[in-house]
């Protein structure tokens, strides 16, 4: 089936300068009752976005409600996506319109979920992350997956980032793990007969 291909993302960014952002904040459990993957974006960071769960009362101090900040890159402080394994967190970020998340540290399960949905997690150093947070709201970032490089366009500063080479190929080509696994059925059957 495949996912959208990812290569170069150049965009302004939304800064969420908070550590330990857990998946209960990204998408609270009460919104996990759907049986499809669509429509989670409107509830992204629901309880940080609205007073008393009321869409008519956006919290002015939350960055998603600040019209000065926009773009397809979310930048967050360390240990982003900790907690529950809910893939709905990655779906919500993707559905909202983000194509990459930048942080100095990602929780394991979230990172896998993001990669499985064509949402690129970019791990940068703590120093580089702080430099991004210091930029104004007009600044743009360029993430080049082929070169594994992220650049702050306004200053020209850049840093390389790590990604598993297999996952990189999947992202660049829009491949799914499941396609690979289905193509490995003979190996799996052979494994089963000997175990």
């Amino acid at each position: 089936m495949g996912k959208a291909k990812v290569d170069i993302i150049k965009s302004r960014f939304v800064p969420l300068n908070m550590e330990n952002v857990d998946t209960d904040q990204i998408i609270p459990a009460r919104f996990l009752k759907a049986t499809t993957r669509d429509g989670f974006g409107k509830n992204l960071f629901r309880d940080w976005r609205y007073e008393n769960d009321d869409e008519a009362k956006p919290k002015a101090d939350f960055v998603l409600n600040n019209k000065n900040f926009t773009g397809s890159i979310l930048v967050a402080a360390k240990n982003f996506g900790c907690g529950s394994s809910r893939e709905h967190a990655a779906w919500a970020i993707d559905d909202y319109g983000f194509r990459a998340v930048v942080s100095s540290f990602f929780a394991d399960i979230f990172k896998n979920n993001a990669l499985n949905n064509g949402l690129l997690p970019v791990t940068v150093s703590e120093d580089f992350l702080q430099k991004i947070f210091e930029q104004g709201n007009e600044a743009t970032l360029t993430i080049n997956l082929t070169e594994q490089k992220i650049t702050i366009d306004t200053t020209g500063e850049s840093e390389s980032f790590e990604i598993n080479s297999y996952k990189k190929t999947c992202m660049l080509n829009g491949y799914d793990d499941i396609d690979y696994l289905l193509s490995s059925k003979e190996d799996i059957l052979a494994f089963e007969t000997t175990h």
């Binding site: 394994s85 809910r86 893939e87 709905h88 399960i109 896998n112 499985n116 793990d177 499941i178």
Partner: peptide
């Protein structure tokens, strides 16, 4: 723990 895409992978393979 795994995400739903991975649940699908395990169900399938």
């Amino acid at each position: 723990g795994i995400g739903t895409s991975e649940v699908e992978m395990v169900l399938a393979t």
